[in-house]
Structures are given as structure tokens and as C-alpha cells.
Design a protein around this nucleic acid. Structure first.
Lengths: 333, 333
DNA sequence: TTGTAAGCGTTATCAT
DNA sequence: ATGATAACGCTTACAA
């Protein structure tokens, strides 16, 4: 089959243990044999068997990246995170393994955990249910939640500052004179973007505007659902003068809906999204949004996870990364 | 540490081999002990150690997905492929491991191959150099090239029908009366999309239009390079009446350039892209494109690879998937 | 039908 | 400085 440590050992008439030590840079090996071993390894094209190593070291240098397929609808979002995550992982000698179907129940993820085929997990879900977190903690496997805060004190997460971002956006709309601002949210089942929604409500309360339930529309996960949401808002007897879509793709749907009604952006209706995906720049007019540092979020999540992995008793890492309001013509005009 | 097969064996006073056989559905185990073992396994929360299994079976049930980071600029492209690939892999009991830095040289990829940490590879590169293919064949590791044809008879690939797609697009533009059609290509170093370019040239030759080198502009990989390319075309003394961009993101750049010059699409200049990414639908006017079945390409590449993996002497799988012209307002108006 | 034992390729402990 | 050997947790001849 393939070259093993034993081949080198025979080749040089040296014991396997010495070869192993030489290869792994132990100090109790003469530099002469070290050289000989290195030479032979190169010559024979030796690479250690990952499986054997994993078994012996009880660790795989692999990180599980658990996400759900609905991310497909947000290609840019996913891609930027992956780029940040893979480059950080690889620079630290780890690789990323993708999993999409393990998030359904704690049980299926638990099975995966127990195979020990990866050393830790990054969870990329709209919502991470408490039972999942409890299970992971009980299994004492390192994990980091990416993209949203969770209230569990023992869980680590790397999240954008959704609250401040949404607050800034509301302030921006308010400064432009908007007083009736529509909000398209996600289905209430998933508590996702609670922060964005809370900021919406908190800001209105701050400036003494009552929160009008008519102005809050739930969208579905499916593409194009933002289209209907915008139409429902604009069908109101007293429609909003601005729409805050909970993420850019919904904003793009809304953009289409508004134009299809013959309205102008921002003259008749102002429009803003969230996330800062490249796509939001492409519409005409380009859409005001809140940029979250996705590559950095991907990178930081791996970095945090590796810290947790290397130091088993490390305190939870809970990091909120700053976001940035990007004013464009969909509101500024 | 964690529950092993030996724990079950002790728990039931049964030998480990019997437990293993029971767990793996061998026929020479009494159904009674099978039940007892299954019960105990569930009770103890047993999951087989992936590392031990991998070592013994000489196989990991993992697939390496090797891509380069420039795909970040095309998030939708990457995401759709990943979705198709992961779902197919998982439905067949495999998982995908991501690698981004191994493509630089045959040597670095060879190192990875020899660790045997994955059973096969999908290569997602603009261009796969011949030395890499030769190396992979020499290592006799199963691999599939995704997204483009290669001429090597022993290499497997799953690719969209770039040639036919580009031909259809040219025919469409020709039917609309366009006779001077600009083409933005990639840097010549990477032979990527040779097929699209060849179709462009072949079509023109077919209809007796000389291929004008002025109408062929190289773009860089970086974002926004399509902007300059379009401007160079439109600066020509005899500018094209239509532009065929080699992929959608370049088309989107060109779209911007055209509008910035105060020209109308398609009235003054018609514009078409390639790939059928969702983003091409978002501009106004939406851009005519050739849709390639990305999810299916991802799926099929894994499916092909698994076939090769399971049948070591299987003939190379070379599959060209049909694409579809999507006429939109950037040409049709 | 069940059990014994070898082996997968490493790393790490303990002698030498 | 080097080597013999056990162990990691599983699968699979082979024996009983």
C-alpha cells in the first residue's frame, strides 16, 4: 500500500520509535539520525497516516461546520464566512468539515459528536435551540455559535452587533424625517434577529413613536417572500414612508415590489436592508444597508474555537463585532 | 473517556468481536444477542470512533473539496455547488472537507493525498494544470474536476456545456441584428472558458463575420475589472452594439459602466452574461444570461466521485450538463 | 453462534 | 541516544 513509518525504519535499520521521534522533532534523537530520517522520508515520499495519527492522538485537527441549507439563498453570506473560516483554520493546521443535516435534533448532532470525527463545532444556524446547547455542554465538546448571540452564559459566540447596527439605521431613517417605518421580520418561531427587531422597537420608543403592529410583517424563509411583505406594507391605509428589511435579500425583493407598483425609491418609499452583501449594491438605486464583517466573523469563530479546543477549561468566548451603516441612494436621495 | 465497543462487551459479558459483528449486521450472530447489543449501545450512547474505524477500514468516508479563494467573489456560484455537493455526499454517508491552499503546486496536493485523510477529491479551479492531473493519476486517488472540461482522457469531470451555451447566446444576439459583439475574457494564462471563447469565434466564423481582436478584452480576476473592460470596448472608434461578458459578475460591472456613460441597455448597447447567478436578475434591466445547473453540477460531481471510489477500475466519467439561455431585458428589449 | 487474536499506523512510556 | 512494547478502538480471519 502506502509508505509507513515502518518502511523508513527498515530502510535505515532504525527502530520505528526512533523514526517517529525524529519525525516529530523530539530532542532525544541525534541530529545525525534526524537528518537521515528526514532524508529517507522525503525520498520515499512519506506522509503520516491521518487515521493512525488521529486514533493515537485522540484528535483530528478538523472542525465541524454545521449549517442549514437555507443558507443557499444567501450565497454571498455563506461564501464570505467560509473564506474567513477556512483560511484561519488552515493557517492553524486544521480543516473544515461541512455538515448540513445534523441540526434537526440534539440527538443527531450528538451522534456526530460522539464519533469524534472532528474536534469541535461551529454552528451557523438562524437559531440554536437551548437543548442543543445543553447537549453540547454535557458532551463537553468545544463549540462556537456563529452570527448570533445566545443568552446561555456557558456558550461561546461570535456575532455582529445587530442591535447597534439596527439602531444606527433607525436613527438614520429618523434623521431623514421618517416617522412611519415598516419592518419585515422573520417567522417568530426562530428568534433570529431579535436584536435587530428589539433595536427597531427600542428606538421608536425612545423617540416617542408608538410601535404599530401593522408595520411589522413576518416573511418566510423562501426567496421572494420579501416581495409580498413589502406589498402588504404598501397596501396599508397609512403606509410606511420607509421600509427596514431584516436582511438584504428581503430588501431586494422589496425593491422590486416597490418599483413594480410604480413608486420611486427613495422619493416615495425609502428602503434599507441589513448585512452589507455585495448584491445590495447592484440594484438601482443601490440599497442602504448595515455591513457586517462576514469574513472576520468566520475567521474569529475558528480562532475562538481553536482557543477553546486547546484549553479545555477556557472561559466561554462571547464576542460582538462592530457593524457599519452604509448609506446609499435608497434612503439618501 | 468515551464509550467504546469494549464497554458494551463487558457490560454484556460478550466478546468484542461479537459486539462488532452485531453492530455491523453480520448474519452469524443470533438475533437475540443482536438485540441485546443494540439495546446496550443505545443505552450507553455508543458511537463508533471514526478514527479507529478509518484506520481499520482504510477509508474515511470523507471527500476533499479543493477550491481557490477567488471563488469568494462569486458567492452564489460557490454556495450552489456546495449545497448540491453536501446533500449528495451526506445522502451517501460521506462528508465534505474543504481545502483552499493545496492547489498551488502538485507537491502540496500530493502531501495531502498521501495522508489519506479523505478518500477522493473534487477540484474546483479555474484551471487544472496537467502536472496536477498527472500526479493524481499516479497516486491513483479518485478525483473529479468540477466546472470545466479537461482534455486528459483519464481525468473525470462534470462540466456545464459552455460551448453550446455560448453558441446559443451568440445566435440570440445575432438574431437581434447584432454584428459587432464585444467579448470580455479572462486572462489568457488560465485557459478557463476556452469553450465560451471558442464558441464566440466559431459562431462569428460561421456567419462570415471576421473576428476583430479589438472586440476582445481581457479582464482581471479582481472585482470591478469588468467595468474597465466595458469602457475600453465602448471607447473604440467603432464600438460594439452588444457585449458578451464571460460571466455574470463581469456583466454586472459592464452594466454599471454602460449606464455611467449615459447609454441605455439594450437600446444603445445590449448586454449578456453567463452562469445564471441570481444576481444577474437584480439589475435593471435584468441581464440575459446562460444558466448552468450549479446545484446539479455539485451533486453530480460527488455522485461521480463516489462511483469512482467504489469501483477502483471504473472508466473516467466525463459529463457535460446542458445549460439554458435565459433571455432578459438587457438584450430582448 | 461465539470467541481469540492479529493488525491497521501511529505515539508515548519505559527500559536499555 | 535508541529500541521494545503497549496502547488508541475498531474489523475480520480463523478457531472453537
Amino acid at each position: 500500500m502506502s509508505i509507513t513509518i515502518e518502511d523508513i525504519s527498515k530502510h535505515l535499520n532504525i527502530s520505528v520509535s526512533t523514526v517517529s521521534k525524529a519525525l516529530n522533532g523530539y530532542t532525544d534523537v541525534s541530529s545525525k539520525t534526524k537528518e537521515r530520517v528526514a532524508m529517507a522520508a522525503r525520498e520515499l515520499g512519506y506522509q503520516p497516516s491521518a487515521a493512525a495519527r488521529n486514533l493515537r492522538r485522540q484528535r483530528t485537527d478538523k472542525i465541524g461546520f454545521v449549517f442549514n441549507n437555507s443558507l443557499m439563498y444567501i450565497g454571498d453570506y455563506f461564501a464570505e464566512i467560509i473564506v474567513g473560516a477556512t483560511s484561519e483554520a488552515e493557517s492553524q493546521g486544521n480543516n473544515i468539515v461541512l455538515y448540513t443535516n445534523e441540526g434537526d435534533s440534539p440527538a443527531s448532532l450528538q451522534k456526530l459528536v460522539r464519533t469524534r470525527e472532528v474536534d469541535g463545532f461551529v454552528l451557523v444556524w438562524n437559531h440554536v435551540p437551548a437543548p442543543i446547547i445543553d447537549m453540547l455542554l454535557a458532551e463537553s465538546v468545544p463549540f462556537v455559535i456563529l452570527g448570533r448571540r445566545v443568552s446561555h452564559p456557558a456558550a461561546s459566540f461570535i456575532a455582529p452587533d445587530n442591535y447597534q447596527g439596527a439602531l444606527q439605521l433607525m436613527q438614520h431613517l429618523y434623521n431623514l424625517g421618517h416617522r412611519r417605518i415598516g419592518f419585515t421580520t422573520r417567522p417568530s418561531m426562530a428568534y433570529t434577529n431579535e436584536d435587530r427587531f428589539n433595536a427597531y422597537k427600542d428606538f421608536l420608543t425612545q423617540v416617542d413613536i408608538p410601535v404599530d403592529p401593522d408595520l411589522i410583517i413576518e416573511t418566510k424563509i423562501e426567496p421572494r417572500s420579501g416581495y409580498q411583505a413589502a406589498n402588504r406594507l404598501l397596501d396599508l391605509p397609512d403606509p410606511p414612508t420607509a421600509i427596514f428589511a431584516f436582511h438584504d435579500y428581503v430588501a431586494i425583493d422589496a425593491h422590486q415590489a416597490i418599483l413594480d407598483r410604480g413608486l420611486r425609491i427613495p422619493h416615495d418609499v425609502a428602503l434599507a436592508g441589513f448585512d452589507g452583501l455585495r448584491t445590495s449594491l447592484i440594484t438601482s438605486p443601490p440599497i442602504t444597508t448595515v455591513r457586517q464583517p462576514l469574513v472576520e466573523i468566520g475567521r474569529a469563530s475558528i480562532s475562538a474555537l481553536l482557543t477553546l479546543m486547546r484549553q479545555g477549561n477556557h472561559a466561554p468566548i462571547q464576542q460582538t463585532l462592530p457593524v457599519k451603516l452604509q448609506v446609499r441612494q435608497s434612503t439618501a436621495g
